[in-house]
Design a protein around this nucleic acid. Structure first.
Lengths: 195, 195
DNA sequence: CGTGTATTGTACCAATCAGTTCCGAACTGT
DNA sequence: ACAGTTCGGAACTGATTGGTACAATACACG
C-alpha cells in the first residue's frame, strides 16, 4: 500500500558502479552520481542512505561481477594450463586499457585513495583483492610448473602476481605513456616462466 | 629595497612535500598546507601562485630527494650485485611500511589519482617513474645473471619491477592486512631468480 | 630617519560539497 | 472513490573548497 519505486535498485547500483569506477570514490560528486544513475537527490538518499553506503553496495556489486569474472577466468576448466588462465586475466586488463578503457580496477583505485581510512570500505576492498588472490592461487595449482609446489610457495607467487596486477591497473588508469601496460602480458609471462 | 620574505622557499616546499605525501594531492586542503608549511594564505599564493604550481614544485623536490635516493641505491658501487641493490630498494620501502610509515610513494599515489588528468602533473609523475625505471635498468646491468642480456630483455624486466614497485607501494599506503607488503622483498627476490 | 615597496595576515568571495527538509504527486489496498 | 504511504523533485543548509582583495606591517635603501 504505497507508491512503488520507479527505478530498479540493482540497475541503479550498476550505473553507480560505472560512475565510481570512472571517477573514483572521492571524485564522484553527488551530481555526478545523480546524472549517471538517472535519479534525484531525494530518491538516492531514500534508497541508499548516503554516498558511502552506496559505495559499499557498489563494491559488493563489483565483487559479484568483475571479481567473479576474474575468478571464472582463473578457474576456467577449458584452459588446462593455469598459467594461461593467469595470462588471460592480464590480457583482458591490457586489452581494456589499449582499447581506450582507462578506468582501471575499481578496487585498485580505491586501495590507493584516501577512502581506505574508512574501515568498512577497507574491509570491502580487502575482500575483493583477497578474492583475486584466491583465484590466482587456484590457477597456479593448475600449472604444470607450479602445481606441485608447496602451499607457501604458491601463496608467495600469488602475492607477487596480485601486486603486479595492482601496479598494472594503476598504470592503465594513469594514462602515462611509459609503454609498460602494452607489454604487461609479456612481463607476466616472464614471471610465470620461473619454477 | 623591500621587505624580505620571512620563510625559506625550499623549506616551505619540503614541508609541502610532507603534506602532499601524507594526504595526497586532492585530499590536501589549503588549510592543511598552510598549517604544515607554517604560513598564511597571502604568503602561499604570493610565493607559489596556486595549489597546482606548488604541487609541481613538490614533485620536482620529490624527484630530487626520494627518486634520487632510489637511484643512488640502485647504482651503489658498494654493492657489487645489482640484484642486491634492487632488493635494497624494496627492502627500504617495506621497512618504511612495517615501521608505521604508510605514506607510500608520492608518485605512485599521484599516478592512481584524478590529478593525472592534468598534463603538467602527469608529465612530472612520468619523469619521476621513468627515473626509477632507469635506476632499475642500471642495477640489472650490474647483475651477474641479467647483465649480459640484451637491452630489450633488461627493459622488460625493469618494467615488471617498476610495476611491482608501484603495486607494493600502493598496498603499503592502503594499510590492507593482506600480508603482502611484509613479504614483498621475498617476492621480488623470486622475481630476480629467473634468468 | 623617513619613504617606498614587498610581504604578510585577514576578511572575503563564489562555487561546490554531502546531506536535509518538505510538499505535491502518484500509487496501493480497501 | 478514498485513505494511507511512499516516492520524486526542488529548495535549502552549513561546511569547506581554492582563490582574491586589501590593509597593516616590516624591512631596505637613500
Amino acid at each position: 500500500m504505497a507508491r512503488p519505486r520507479e527505478f530498479n535498485i540493482d540497475d541503479a547500483i550498476g550505473k553507480a558502479t560505472e560512475v565510481f569506477w570512472t571517477k573514483g570514490y572521492q571524485e564522484a560528486s553527488l551530481p555526478d552520481l545523480l546524472e549517471g544513475m538517472g535519479l534525484t537527490r531525494g530518491s538516492l538518499y531514500k534508497a541508499f542512505t548516503d554516498k558511502k553506503t552506496l559505495f559499499l553496495l557498489v563494491l559488493e556489486h563489483y565483487e559479484d561481477r568483475a571479481v567473479a569474472a576474474a575468478q571464472a577466468r582463473l578457474s576456467d576448466p577449458g584452459v588446462a594450463d593455469g598459467r594461461d588462465r593467469i595470462l588471460s586475466l592480464f590480457q583482458a586488463s591490457v586489452a581494456a586499457a589499449t582499447s581506450g578503457d582507462h578506468r582501471g580496477c575499481l578496487l585498485c583505485t580505491a586501495a590507493a585513495g584516501a577512502e581506505m581510512s574508512d574501515p568498512e570500505i577497507a574491509a570491502a576492498v580487502q575482500r575483493g583483492l583477497q578474492g583475486i588472490r584466491e583465484g590466482l592461487e587456484t590457477a597456479l595449482r593448475a600449472s604444470p610448473v607450479h602445481g606441485a609446489q608447496e602451499e607457501a610457495a604458491i601463496r608467495a607467487l600469488a602475492n607477487v602476481l596480485l601486486t603486479q596486477y595492482i601496479g598494472l591497473r594503476v598504470l592503465a588508469r594513469s594514462q602515462l605513456s611509459l609503454g609498460i601496460v602494452e607489454h604487461g602480458v609479456a612481463g607476466v609471462a616472464r614471471l610465470l616462466e620461473m619454477s
